[in-house]
């Protein structure tokens, strides 16, 4: 099984040179810590920042420089600042190649739910709906099951949707999966996890073809 950092590290393997990338709050922000050697990407933050850098050193925090998660950050050489309307023009206009975000549920047709649990938790969708409706590449970072051990990879989402038929790839603590017209397709297993483990933890349609390799780090 992978931990949060393991999931982030596996997702970072998908980064391609020259890409503009948006990282959602939570596990996705950790992806920035694992950029592969020789790969140069620029991180976009929905609140109006391109070229987002790492957290500042102690004492150098700037209240006017934060990311989408309201954390203090830095800006790298070549970075730029703009307003919210231009930020979402970048996102909606498909100028950002990859979006990484978390999810509460994903369906085997690629629907995603990650903003509301009716009657319990209604934080809001933030930029998530714009991001999932616009990106060509969407990778979801999530735990395969919830705290009660129930699958989060479902036939149909039960929670209010963030987007329909938009997720392309999922990396969980157990597996890497693609979304195909026939459902979830298992690509890789996490270290120490068997295909049977993954089958038991996946409620949606799961396609397992041939030998499923272990993730390489």
């Amino acid at each position: 099984m992978l931990d949060r950092n393991g999931i982030a590290q596996r997702i970072a393997q998908e980064l391609q040179n020259g890409w503009y990338v948006n990282l959602g709050i939570g596990i996705p922000t950790l992806v920035a810590n694992y950029i592969p050697q020789g790969v140069s990407v620029e991180f976009q933050s929905e609140n109006g920042l391109l070229g987002m850098g790492p957290f500042p050193f102690e004492g150098e925090e700037d209240a006017d420089l934060i990311n989408a998660g309201k954390q203090t950050v830095t800006i790298l050489p070549g970075g730029s600042i703009f307003d919210s309307s231009l930020s979402f023009a970048m996102i909606r206009g498909k100028h950002v190649q990859l979006t990484v975000l978390g999810a509460m549920e994903v369906s085997d047709q690629g629907d995603i739910a990650n903003w509301k649990i009716p009657g319990k938790m209604v934080k809001g969708m933030g930029g998530a709906m714009d991001l999932v409706a616009s990106a060509d590449n969407i990778i979801v970072a999530m735990s395969h099951t919830n705290r009660k051990g129930q699958s989060k990879l479902l036939r149909q989402c039960t929670l209010p949707l963030t987007g329909v038929k938009c997720v392309k790839k999922i990396v969980t603590n157990m597996a890497v999966l693609d979304i195909t017209p026939q459902g979830f397709k298992l690509l890789q297993r996490a270290p120490g996890v068997s295909v049977e483990d993954i089958k038991s933890a996946t409620e949606g349609r799961l396609i397992v073809e041939g030998d499923i390799p272990e993730m390489k780090f």
Binding site: E46, F88, W115, M125, G126, G127, M129, D130
Partner: peptide
């Protein structure tokens, strides 16, 4: 609650 991009 409305999507951030739509709000902008």
């Amino acid at each position: 609650l409305i999507p951030q991009g739509s709000l902008a």
